[in-house]
Design a protein around this nucleic acid. Structure first.
Length: 734
RNA sequence: GGGCACAUAGCUCAAUUGGUUAGAGCGUCGCAUUCACAUUGCGAAGGUUCCCUGUUCGAGUCAGGGUGUGCCCACCA
């Protein structure tokens, strides 16, 4: 066999061809695997399943470096386990990514001079749906470019009807179990996006502002936000503060305030820090979480000062209708002219919450929202983690998860956006229309009902209005592990759940990982996965976070084209320890392109020199010279070592060791030394060298295949070996 | 205020959980090249493993303290 291979490896040509070959082979699906077929014929024992669910990928853009890393690591695991004979399932998922996608689409609308607030919700939904569908093919194509050997026949989308059904059933079950409540509580409100956000969806930003000391009757109070103070009629101090001993809880005082005289009430509460400011504060329960709690404790009234667009309401008098930024200096001016401004501290550092998407300042607002009680949901998760039912890689994420779960707060799950799963709830019209003879019972009318169809009230003919809100995306994606596998009746659920490994970014451990654990335990009674592998961020070459504004975003698709998928994958995995951020330097990937070519030329050399040898006999070792046998057994040591690393999720080490062996042992030593052996007059020495070279090549290809699937498969396809299968399903060496 | 990490060659990172002389990639410098590969080979320079104290036969690794950096959580008006 003397096949002429070109002098350099051409990734682009090989990759498209090879991926098609794999797809057509059926080996991406568990039922198509040789190990499963052989087991069916009774020839080998039933293989063990090995399952990974791909974290659903946003359909609102194109693949970024983080996605490339996820796909690489997961593909390495799946390919390794597939070669070990497992019944492997890697289920691909696409994400509607609720709020994220709506934000992206709103930006596009903005560019076109349109706004979601001038659109019918139905129309907006349809447009976003079309937008994501248009992106779907691109994203799928990009996932394939990465070489991902996932089962496309099982591809799931987070808005698939069966997923939505599962989410509804979970919500209903939670409502029945009294884990859901609808409450008027203070929430994080983004005035730009016009929706509630969970605490995780806000970021804290430290900034310097003016701190105003104001005369409030006999007291001096301090505030950074004078524009919220119009309705302040409670003045709060610590019950133990001796300076204010003369004032009693509930005492009324008359005083002159911004827009005229008011009556204020003294409140004593321990939440007040005596050492901060003057030790006295007035409260604005509608727009501040601490104040809200104080008002709840003392059953105080609350009033909205700022509307949901961030403009002042009529209570602000002459300032009504103004946005905060415009009103604040004018209000300060008025306070000053009335002699109520005591002093201004211009150097006041404090933390403000901002929307994590648009950086608008969050305006706390009181709104009726759906909440989940989290304490009871968290308990089984805490137990499971403490018992070691879930293994964290790296380990310190165990502590981080437990800390969060033990301090968990209730979760607001309703969002005022259209792009998502509608909340299956209905609200009674304000007015009751009693049915004949039921006039006396209308007090029993249900205000809110959780149901898929419009409910009918027994006592009343009033209509029910559909709740306009959608679920927080993470509420549905938290159910992904069992929902995507067809809980509760499907064979896939029975076979592949709980899954083996959840591999995702450490930055979404609370958003997603913790919630999957809680929701899976609640619905199925089982943990969703046995191992959590968390990778770090992919940073630029200088270790900075990639961002569009910095202009340092590395597009993996460009790297693919330039250096080939295998090179990108190696560049992403070598030196990347779990949990640690990875600085992605282009030179590193370039170096791996050289490696792919090195491997290619190793194969060329071997092929050129082994004519006549087309198969490896099992008793190969008997035919080797002692020297060659030593080479083969040394390779055996590498195999053992690398296998151990693979089993322990040390892919970065395995890849580096194999790389180093192939280049600096196989190419630099074994091949160099083989040149004299092949030139030998001694037939035994020559034949031994030939067999040894082929053996080392085949084993190297197998070891490299999970990392560099394309070039290895391409080379393997050029070897003439009897009973050869595609490398993707060949047996991992032992 | 609380929590979690990190600090090793010029740069980016390893060192498989305490074990020879701390390694690799990239970069730098020198030499070689009719060879499967210039996308090459051989070689060199480059280290107080942040600092201090301790445990140990033995510490980059463990403990205590310090310095610096990053991230997460939290309701100081």
């Amino acid at each position: 066999m003397s096949i002429e291979l070109p002098k350099t490896y051409n990734p682009e040509e090989a990759e498209n061809k090879i991926y098609k070959l794999w797809e057509e082979s059926g080996f991406f699906s568990p039922e198509g695997l040789p190990s499963v077929t052989l087991a069916k014929e009774g020839k080998i024992p039933e293989p063990k399943p090995f399952t990974i669910l791909m974290p659903p990928i946003n359909e609102n853009g194109s693949l970024h470096a983080g996605h490339a890393l996820v796909l690489t690591i997961e593909d390495i695991m799946i390919r390794y386990k597939r070669m070990r004979g497992h019944q492997t399932l890697w289920l691909p998922g696409l994400d509607h990514a609720g709020f994220e996608t709506q934000v992206v689409y709103e930006k596009q609308l903005e560019k076109e001079g349109r706004s979601r607030f001038q659109m019918e919700p139905g129309q907006l939904y349809d447009e976003i749906l079309n937008f994501t569908l248009a992106n779907k093919k691109d994203i799928e194509g990009q996932i394939k470019k990465m070489g991902a050997s996932c089962d496309w026949t099982r591809e799931k989308f987070t808005l698939d009807p069966d997923i939505v059904q599962t989410v509804y059933q979970t919500f209903k079950k939670m409502a029945d179990d009294n884990f859901v409540y609808r409450g008027e509580k203070i929430v994080n409100w983004c005035p730009k996006h016009q929706t509630t956000l969970s605490d995780l969806e806000t970021t804290d930003v430290e900034q310097k502002d003016n701190f105003y000391y104001l005369q409030y009757g006999p007291f001096v109070i301090a505030t950074a936000r004078p524009e919220t103070k119009f309705g302040d009629k409670y003045v709060v101090m610590h019950p133990g503060d001796k300076r204010y001993r003369g004032y009693k809880d509930g005492q009324k005082i008359e005083l002159e305030w911004i827009n005229g005289p008011i009556t204020a009430t003294i409140v004593k509460d321990e939440a007040v820090d005596m050492t901060f400011g003057t030790g006295v504060m007035t409260i604005t329960p509608w727009h501040d979480a601490v104040d809200f709690d104080i008002a709840e404790r003392h059953k105080l009234e609350r009033e909205q000062i700022i509307d949901f667009r961030g403009k002042l309401l009529p209570i602000a008098g002459e300032f009504a209708g103004m946005p905060i930024s415009k009103a604040r200096p004018l209000i300060v001016e008025k306070l000053k002219s009335k002699g109520l401004l005591v002093k201004i501290d211009e150097d006041y550092k404090h933390v403000v919450k901002k929307c994590y998407k648009c950086e608008s300042i969050i305006e706390p607002q009181v709104r009726e929202q759906w909440f989940l009680k989290m304490k009871q949901l968290a308990e089984p998760a805490i137990k499971a983690i403490e018992n070691g039912e879930i293994k964290f890689i790296p380990e310190h994420y165990k502590k981080i998860s437990l800390h969060w779960l033990k301090n968990i707060l209730d979760w607001p799950i309703s969002r005022q956006i259209v792009w998502g799963i509608p909340i299956p709830a209905w609200h009674h019209e304000p007015k009751c229309v009693p049915r004949p003879g039921k006039e006396k019972e209308i007090k029993k009318c249900l205000k809110t009902v959780i149901a898929l169809e419009e409910p009918r009230c027994e006592f009343c003919e009033a209509k029910f209005i559909r709740d306009p809100d959608t679920f927080d995306t993470w509420f549905s994606s938290g159910q992904w592990p069992f929902a995507s596998l067809g809980y509760p009746d499907s064979n896939d659920y029975k076979t592949f759940f709980p899954t083996d490994v959840m591999e995702t970014g450490g930055d979404i451990i609370f958003f997603w990982v913790a919630r999957m654990i809680m929701l899976s335990l609640y619905v199925t009674g089982e943990v969703p996965f046995k191992t959590v592998y968390l990778h770090g961020l992919v940073l630029d070459a200088k270790g900075r976070k990639m961002s569009k504004s910095k202009g340092n975003v590395i597009n993996p698709l460009n790297l693919l084209e330039k250096y080939g998928t295998d090179a990108l994958r190696m560049g992403l995995v070598i030196g990347n320890t779990p949990g640690t951020s990875l600085a992605l330097a282009e030179d590193k990937i370039k170096g791996q392109k050289h490696f792919a070519n090195k491997l290619w030329n190793i194969a060329r050399y071997v092929l050129m020199n082994i004519s006549g040898i087309s198969t490896l006999k099992p008793e190969i070792k008997a035919e080797l010279t002692a020297e060659d046998e030593k080479i083969v057994s040394e390779l055996g040591a590498l195999v053992k070592d690398a296998t151990e690393d693979m089993d322990q999720f040390r892919f970065y080490l395995a890849a580096e060791k194999i790389y180093h062996y192939v280049w600096h042992t196989f190419a630099d030593k074994i091949i160099e030394e083989s040149k004299t052996k092949l030139a030998s007059e001694d037939v035994i020495i020559k034949a031994s060298a030939q067999r040894m070279l082929l053996e080392v090549l085949i084993t190297s290809l197998k070891l490299l295949h999970p990392f560099m699937p394309f070039v290895t498969e391409e080379i393997y396809s050029n070897l003439a070996i009897k009973n050869k299968r595609l490398l993707i399903v060949e047996k991992w060496p032992d």
